[in-house]
Design a protein around this nucleic acid. Structure first.
Lengths: 248, 248
DNA sequence: TCAAAAGTGTTGGCCATACACCCATGC
DNA sequence: GCATGGGTGTATGGCCAACACTTTTGA
C-alpha cells in the first residue's frame, strides 16, 4: 500500500506545513514567530509549522498547527495555501518539502507556546529583516513571498476585513490597508470604493464613539470574496512578476 | 539522516509533480494528456507527471518530466508552480501528495510517449470535460484550477506571448487571448494596449505577408513579465475568489 | 476592384484623484 | 469654540470601449 513505486531514487520524503500568520497590532504589521527548541537552528526564530499527519490534508494540517500554536481556531481568520518549497538542502536533517500557508487575522492574543516551540511571539515584520538574527531554514524567503501575496490580495479581494475584529469601521479597514501597504490613503476615496463594492461591508446599524470626533458606522464582513472593481495601489509600486521556473 | 522525526503518525509520503501543459492549436486551447499504462486508472487519460527524485527540487522535477513527456526543453515555454494537492484518498495506492505545474507553450509537435505512458496526445480542453471518459485521480480539478490561473495570468502578465512561436504578429497574440478567454476582442483597442505596454513586444522590423491582406509587423517577446496596465476581461466574467481553507 | 487583415483617429462615458467642505462628538 | 475623525460633494484629467475610417496587400 505505501510502496507506490519503490524504485531507487524515488525515496519518500517528509512533508511539513509552515504558517505565515500576519496581524496588525499597534499600527504595525506583525508576524507570529516561534523560537526553535530543537536542532537544527536551535534558538533561532522560525515560522510555526509541523509535519503532516497520516490521514490529513495539507489544509487540515495547517488548521491544526494554527490551533496548536496560537490557540485560535480557523473560523475567525483567513487561511490560504501559498506554495511549496523544495530545495533539497533546505533542511540539514534530510529531505523535507514544506507547503507554506498564509494566515491573516485580527489582533490575536499573545500565543501560548506549542510543543515544538520554547516561545512564540509577535514580531513586527520590519524587525525580522532588519534584525540581527535571521530566520531558520528558508523561512525568510517564505515570509517575503507571503508579504507580497498579502499586499497583492488586498487589491483584488476582501481579505483585508480578515484583519479586523468585527464589528469594525471604515477607518479601521483603511488603517489595515495603510499599514500593510505602508502608504497613506485618501479617506474619502477609500470610503467610496469599499462602500460601493458589492457585499464587501454590511452595516450593523450601530455606531462606535471614538474618544474624540464624530461616531463612525460599524460594519461586518460581507459575503463577497472578490473586490470589484479592484482597489489598486497607486503610484510607482514595484510589483514582482509571477514566480517562473527558469531552466539552468 | 532521513529519519527526521520518526514518530508514529508522521510517516513519510511520496511526492509527485503533475503538469498541465497548454497550447493553442487549430484555434482551440488544448492540453497534453497521457493514457495511463498502469493501474490504477489503467487506460484512463491523465496529466503527465511523475515522482520527484532524491536530489531534485520540484521545479527541476517539473522541467525533467516536461522533457521526458514532450521532448521539449523548458527554454521556450512558461512554467510555474500552481499548488499542492493532498487529499489522503487521491491515490488508492497510498499517500501521494502532488504539486501541480502550469506550462504554456506555442504549438508543440506531437509528443513521443514517455515511460509511464502508453500514449500522449493533445486534447481540446472542452472535450476533456464534456467527453465520456473522466481524467484519472483528481486531475480534472487540477486542470480546472490551471485553466483559471492561465486565464487570469493573461490579464496581468505577458505570458500570452509564451503561446506564440517567435516571431509573431499582434494578430497572433490577440488570437491567443480570444481562444483562451473564449471571447472576441476589438483588434484596434487590443493593438493599442499591447503596443503601449512597456517592453512587452519588441519589433523585429520584418513583416509577415498573409495569404490575403495587408502584411503585419513581426515582434519578439520583450523583457517585461508584468502587463501594466492590465488587460482585463471586460463584461460579466465570473471570476472565482481565492482558494481559501475553510474549517469543518 | 474586391476581400481581408493591419493599423489610425476620434468621441463619449466612466472612473479615480484631489481637494473643498460639512457633520457630530468630547473636551 | 475647537480639535478630531467621519462622511459628502464635485471637478478635472486620464483611460477605455466603440466604431468609423484609411492602408496595404493577393487574387
Amino acid at each position: 500500500m505505501i510502496d507506490v513505486t519503490a524504485k531507487p531514487g524515488h525515496a519518500p520524503v517528509f512533508v511539513t506545513v509552515d504558517l505565515v500568520i500576519l496581524t496588525v497590532r499597534q499600527d504595525v504589521l506583525q508576524v507570529l514567530l516561534i523560537e526553535r527548541g530543537n536542532e537544527p537552528y536551535l534558538g533561532f526564530p522560525a515560522l510555526p509549522g509541523g509535519h503532516v499527519r497520516d490521514g490529513e490534508t495539507l489544509d487540515q494540517a495547517a488548521l491544526r498547527e494554527l490551533g496548536e500554536e496560537t490557540g485560535v481556531d480557523g473560523r475567525s481568520l483567513h487561511l490560504e495555501q501559498l506554495r511549496a518549497y523544495s530545495d533539497p538542502g533546505r533542511d540539514p536533517r534530510g529531505r523535507v518539502i514544506t507547503v507554506a500557508y498564509l494566515a491573516l487575522g485580527p489582533g490575536l492574543p499573545h500565543p501560548t507556546a506549542g510543543t515544538d516551540a520554547t516561545a512564540a511571539r509577535w514580531v513586527p515584520v520590519a524587525d525580522v529583516f532588519d534584525g540581527p538574527v535571521p530566520l531558520a531554514f528558508d523561512h525568510a524567503g517564505i515570509l517575503r513571498d507571503a508579504l507580497e501575496r498579502a499586499r497583492s490580495q488586498l487589491e483584488h479581494t476582501t481579505v483585508a476585513a480578515a484583519f479586523c475584529a468585527e464589528p469594525f469601521t471604515v477607518g479601521d479597514l483603511r488603517h489595515i490597508y495603510e499599514v500593510v501597504w505602508g502608504m497613506p490613503l485618501d479617506p474619502s476615496n477609500f470610503r467610496r470604493k469599499v462602500t460601493n463594492a458589492d457585499s464587501f461591508l454590511v452595516p450593523t446599524g450601530e455606531r462606535r464613539h471614538p474618544e474624540t470626533g464624530r461616531p463612525a458606522a460599524l460594519y461586518r464582513r460581507g459575503a463577497a470574496r472578490l473586490l470589484l472593481p479592484p482597489l489598486l495601489r497607486s503610484g510607482d509600486v514595484t510589483r514582482p512578476g509571477p514566480v517562473v521556473v527558469t531552466p539552468h
